[in-house]
Simulated scan of single mutants.
Amino acid sequence: MRTIKAQHQAVSAPIADLITYRALPTPAVEHLDPFLFLNHHGPQQYAPNNAGLPFGPHPHRGFETVTFIVAGDIMHQDSGGHQSIIGAGGIQWMTAGRGLIHSEVSSPAFKKTGGDLEILQLWVNLPARDKMVAPHYRGLQKDEIPAVPHDEGRVVLHAVAGEWLGTAGAVQPLTAISLATIDFRADGQLRLSIPADHTIFCYTIRGKLRVNGQETEARRLTEFNYDGDELHLEALTEATLLLGHAAPFREPIVAYGPFVMNSEAEIRQAYQDYQAGKFGQWPG
């Protein structure tokens, strides 16, 4: 089994009235190449006639955002003309590439009625060769993501990208990045083989798990060494896990605000291009 280097507790980082825990980066861990950033919003309950999510129009360049809606919904709009409302169990995969402007807010229905909300957003780096690709967006509802039962139904793996237990994920990303969310009933077990040279991204959303012999719990990121290819997961309670893996790019990472490039000069160029209107026009 691959050994565990450390477990990192997500840190509280509220945004207005939105409960938020940041799992990456923190003072303990900057990134897990090519995984750059993870915000865990909620869980919390919104009252009727609420203001919803606060993420109005803002730009991105040089990476991809993958958003997992655990509860509630999220309404996406961007300068490329894409729009969608994705509900619980769905995902949004946005390739910012050379640049676009987008917003992520709650739907009018959610703002009117309120309800439970829990959303995770993961930033995944793009290699230098792909940082300036054309932007792309795809929103998928829960029933569009393959659900793979295992261990007599005690484990259900939702295959977002890559191949999981012989099932291809719903998204074919630019780079060979595998991502899934996994729901466990208590005592559910899952064994996976992951290449030893891949970075593993393992974040417990809910519940308690034993991961390669170590217990972990909600809001913890497990960091692995690169010394084995076997991953053994055992649920101690009902639990939900965000799991990914990919070969590291091993390229310079320069991040500033909403841009992630390979040099400071490229960051300056990103700001100049945004200010010059090269990220497209905001609708309306």
Rank of each mutant, 00 (worst) to 15 (best):
T3F: 06
A10C: 07
P14H: 05
A16Q: 14
L18C: 03
P25R: 02
A28V: 13
E30D: 08
H31A: 09
P34N: 11
H40Y: 08
Q45R: 07
P48Q: 04
N49R: 13
V70F: 00
I74K: 01
Q77H: 09
G87F: 07
I91S: 01
Q92V: 02
Q92R: 07
T95Y: 02
G99I: 06
E104K: 08
G114H: 12
L122V: 00
P127G: 09
P127E: 12
R129T: 15
M132C: 10
Y137M: 06
Y137V: 04
Q141H: 15
D143C: 13
I145C: 02
I145R: 04
A147I: 09
V148D: 07
H150G: 05
R154E: 08
V155L: 05
V156I: 12
A159P: 03
A159T: 01
V160D: 01
A161F: 01
G162L: 11
Q172D: 15
A176F: 12
I177M: 12
S178Q: 08
L179P: 02
D183H: 10
D183E: 14
F184Q: 02
R191H: 14
H198G: 05
T199D: 09
F201N: 00
R206P: 02
L209C: 08
L209K: 08
N212P: 07
N212H: 07
E215R: 10
T216P: 03
R219N: 10
D229V: 00
H232Y: 05
H232C: 09
E234M: 12
L236H: 14
L241A: 04
R250I: 06
R250E: 15
I253N: 03
V254I: 12
V260A: 01
M261L: 10
I267Q: 05
Y271P: 03
Q272D: 09
P283T: 12
